[in-house]
Write a protein that binds this DNA or RNA. Structure first.
Ligand code: MN
Ligand code: MN
Ligand code: ZN
Ligand code: ZN
Lengths: 161, 161
DNA sequence: TTTGATAATGAAAATCATTTTCAATAAATT
DNA sequence: AATTTATTGAAAATGATTTTCATTATCAAA
């Protein structure tokens, strides 16, 4: 783990500095992986991808870094119910907009969707207002998710009949 | 673990039989706990309550039973993000109606609410229809949840300022 | 009611994702 | 370059849940 990380400064450097976190090689590499590759990676997924190019970066550091990035808000952590947390970049140039998820209960495939977000937000705005008064509860976030069977899993079930 | 379980047959006996599960003492006791006590119990919570009256029932059996009851639909399992699964009776006489949750991110308190369920369902019905076509995904269930700070936790924060 | 097949149980060990510990190392500031 | 201290990696620890396996209890059949 010596030398500086290749390419120039990144858009997230300021975020790190803002929280007085050092800009280290493992952090850069992990953020690069998160911003280039597909979403919803587990810690081990991240580790594996990182490991190919930088075999000296350990799994422990991946966990620590994902926790840090989640805390400072650069990354969002999800629990889809398969026993491992999943992570997704939350902001920046390559950011995906506000979206929710379809989760296949058979193969754990995750599908992002951003349809109806407007309508959802509108209803939730109203709900949040009423609930926070009624239950004296300050709402800061919400979770909407649909579970079911993806196309592949449905056809597998068909075949087995 | 000898002798039969005290009181007469229970409403859930038929559910168990339907799935060709034996009606055992541990299962009766665990179901009794779930139907009498407060909701959102962890496996260990259930074990502790069971243990007071029936010290011979093991934690392993509690886990196994909760899994079974979840599979046959008598119990619903939740992951609120504190590392342990929580369980709630899903049907029967003492059933709570369809409801969603407010989750305190500081103390993990869970508040049930059933306001706006109608409106939610109406919107979700529409969303589900469109999404299942667009993404070729058969939706079987949904999850709505609000995160935030409960009253107690807000006042604690106030005090510490 | 007794019997027999086998599903269910409990204790201990195993899993598995994640966290902690701690000595070594690297990033920022001077 | 020297100093300070946050960060790192390996190994061990943790903690919830599952698996294993020998023993026991349930239930249908005789
Ligand atoms: Mn997503
Ligand atoms: Mn509830
Ligand atoms: Zn699937
Ligand atoms: Zn709280």
């Amino acid at each position: 783990m010596s030398g500086r990380y290749g390419r120039g400064p990144r858009w997230w450097d300021s975020n790190l500095r803002k929280h007085s976190c050092r800009i280290t090689m493992p952090r850069q590499v992990i953020l690069d992986v998160l911003s280039n590759e597909e979403q919803h990676l587990s810690a081990e997924d991240v580790f594996l991808k990182v490991h190919k190019k930088y075999p000296d970066i350990g799994l422990t550091t991946v966990y620590r870094t994902l926790n840090l990035l989640t805390q400072i808000g650069l990354v969002v952590r999800f629990d889809f119910g398969d026993g491992k947390a999943r992570y997704e970049l939350s902001s920046g140039p390559e950011k995906k907009g506000h979206h929710h998820h379809l989760v296949c209960t058979k193969c754990n495939r995750i599908i992002d969707y951003d349809d109806f977000i407007e309508e959802e937000e509108k209803l939730f705005g109203k709900i949040e207002k009423v609930l926070s008064e009624k239950y004296d509860f300050e709402i800061t976030d919400h979770l909407v998710r649909f579970y079911g069977l993806c196309e592949e899993c449905r056809s597998e079930i068909q075949e087995s009949l």
